[in-house]
Design a binder for these strands. Structure first.
Lengths: 242, 242
DNA sequence: ACTCATTTATGAGTAGCGTCATATATTCCG
DNA sequence: CGGAATATATGACGCTACTCATAAATGAGT
């Protein structure tokens, strides 16, 4: 059954007979309760034991349901991850966004946002890995929308930054904020994977991401004064104009 | 067993016997033979039955080895994928690169390269999916190097394109070709995942990737000729699946 | 040729994800 | 209320990736 069905009006009372989906009553309520129990149980266990070390049996037991019942609410073990983290992610995005100075330069804003996410993932790299891995394919049309919300929410924040920078005149007026935002996100996501995938160290990841983000932002700047590298003792003498 | 076996030299003080570097003997030979049989068997079965539908038992049987022996040569079923495709990928990269006009514009060269890869993956999306998924984490230090070779080889080709474009004067002289190449690759890889992960259709993927690659390349161009965007091009930049 | 340390092979065994027939609960309706 | 219809719950079971104790093979030293 689709857990994300609407009709969440427990207005109760009103014994309106049929065709009033608002008073779905006990069943609907029970279902929500169970989803909540499952989510809580899974979250706790994943944090304590890690994702792969946690068995679906354990989650079912902790949620006090039968082993098979679990799969009525999450179609697979990976679904559990999404169930657990979709809310946490959405919340995280808003939280981090809230801490960012609205008047800071675009590159700084972008990096602050991504840094917030990275620091979050750093607290539990193993789960972040599992999450990234599961996100790599959505065979489930129900969960697809949930998953898509996350990058979309991030891109939305980036669009704000880019639009503001454009309004400020920091970047060219012909820049499409959505394109720019997606571009920045693509770099973040791909680089994030190199880190979580254990291909580069955390510091190398941060360094690489910085370089690439700067590369893109520089490409959007209104004037092509190229700083030849912020090396030591840099003389920015000539604002060469093309 | 790790195919890049360390010399079975117990670091003894005595290089007692003459080593047979050329003819490591029966053991070495047998090992290579088995790796070859396993790889061939796995490749065939993956193509015929698909990755998930192929069992490790079947691969072992087809390779005429015991079920447990398989795991001496591939530490996991996913390892088999890399074993099978690392060579094929390297070859593909060179092949596609060879078909690209060296004098074409940078954006066109880049898109031709990526298109070659995309068309390859299109022939077997399910395997491509599995491959991408498996590449998302390298817990195995032995395979990591093999895996890293692929993006590195792609970036290397991109560096050639960017360098040539810079020499031609198509892009600014202060562009770092490696940064540019990595940036383009990041966009390709992240967008590829949205397609293989079933989040967007093939056509939307191509469209989105085109837009983003163009965005980056435009940012590198030597002159800020304002993108006039000379038409009411379909505002399809947001196309999503379904 | 014989010994023996080391490497390689094996398949029965284990664990865990997901399924399914069956059972139980809830709602619908006369 | 009764009883059919439908939705939800369950745990035993199937299937498969992977492990491990044991066996076989190899080759260097003697």
């Amino acid at each position: 059954m689709d857990t994300s069905s609407k009709m969440s009006k427990p207005a109760s009372a009103k014994p309106t007979k049929k065709e009033h989906p608002q008073t779905e009553g006990r069943r609907e309520r029970n279902k929500r309760e169970k989803v909540a129990r499952i989510t809580a149980a899974a979250r706790t266990l994943f944090y304590i034991k890690g994702y792969t070390e946690t068995t679906t049996q354990e989650v079912a037991e902790a949620a006090d349901i039968g082993a098979g019942t679990l799969f009525l609410y999450a179609k697979s073990k990976e679904d559990l991850l999404i169930l657990v983290f979709k809310d946490e992610m959405s919340q995280l995005i808003e939280e981090v966004y809230g801490t960012i100075r609205k008047k800071a330069p675009l590159l700084q804003q972008t990096e602050s946002l991504f840094d917030g996410f990275v620091e979050y993932h750093r607290r539990d790299v193993v789960i972040a890995r599992a999450l990234i891995r599961e996100l790599s394919f959505s065979g489930n049309s129900g969960r697809r929308k949930d998953v898509l919300k996350i990058p979309e929410a991030i891109v939305e924040k980036l669009v704000h930054f880019v639009s503001a920078a454009r309004a400020r005149g920091d970047i060219r007026a012909d820049i499409d904020p959505v394109e720019a935002a997606r571009c920045l996100f693509a770099i973040y996501y791909q680089q994030l994977q190199t880190w979580l995938g254990n291909y580069v160290s955390h510091s190398a990841f941060k360094q690489n991401m910085h370089v690439l983000l700067k590369f893109v932002v520089d490409g959007m700047s209104v004037d092509d004064e190229r700083k030849p590298e912020p090396s030591q003792n840099q003389r920015m003498s000539q604002t060469r104009k093309k």
